[in-house]
Amino acid sequence: MNQMIRNTQETSMNRDNASHAGQAGPNELVPSRYALKIGEIDVLVVSDGVLPLPTKMLAHNAEPAVRAAWLDDMFLPPDAFDWALNVVVVRSGGKTILVDAGLGSDPDLHLPKAGQTVKRLEAAGIDLGSVTDVVLTHMHMDHVGGLLVEGVKERLRPDLRIHVAAAEVKFWEAPDFSRVSMPPGFPDALRATAKRFRKEYQSRLRLFDEEHEVAPGVVVRRSGGHTPGHSVVRLASGGDRLTFAGDLVFAVGFAHPEWHNGFEHDPEEAARARISLLRELAANRELLVATHMPFPSVGHVAVEGDAFRWVPVFWDY
Rank of each mutant, 00 (worst) to 15 (best):
D82S: 12
D82E: 15
D82Y: 11
W83G: 00
W83N: 01
W83S: 02
W83P: 00
A84L: 05
N86T: 01
N86I: 01
N86G: 02
V87G: 02
V87H: 03
V87Y: 04
V88P: 08
V88Q: 12
V89M: 15
V89N: 10
V90E: 11
V90F: 13
V90K: 14
R91A: 13
R91P: 02
R91L: 01
R91H: 12
S92W: 11
S92A: 15
S92R: 13
S92E: 09
S92D: 10
G93E: 10
G93I: 14
G94R: 14
G94V: 09
K95Q: 15
K95N: 11
K95F: 01
T96H: 05
T96S: 12
T96V: 13
T96R: 15
I97S: 08
I97V: 15
I97E: 06
I97Q: 07
I97A: 09
I97D: 05
L98H: 07
L98W: 07
V99F: 10
V99Q: 11
V99M: 14
V99A: 15
V99G: 09
D100K: 10
A101W: 12
A101D: 04
A101N: 13
G102S: 08
G104H: 10
G104M: 12
G104A: 11
S105K: 09
S105Q: 14
S105D: 15
S105E: 15
D106F: 13
D106M: 10
D106L: 08
P107F: 08
P107H: 08
P107A: 10
P107V: 09
D108E: 14
L109N: 03
L109C: 03
H110G: 07
H110F: 07
L111V: 04
L111R: 03
L111W: 09
P112R: 04
P112Q: 06
P112Y: 02
P112S: 06
K113D: 14
K113W: 06
A114P: 01
G115Y: 04
Q116H: 08
T117H: 01
T117P: 00
T117W: 00
T117M: 11
V118Y: 00
V118W: 02
V118Q: 05
V118A: 09
K119W: 00
K119T: 07
K119C: 00
R120N: 13
R120L: 10
L121Y: 06
L121Q: 05
L121T: 02
L121A: 05
E122I: 05
E122M: 10
E122S: 13
A123V: 00
A123H: 14
G125V: 05
G125R: 05
G125C: 04
G125T: 02
G125I: 04
G125L: 10
G125F: 09
I126N: 03
I126T: 03
I126D: 03
I126P: 07
I126W: 03
I126R: 04
I126C: 05
I126A: 05
D127T: 01
D127K: 13
D127C: 05
D127W: 08
D127I: 00
L128A: 02
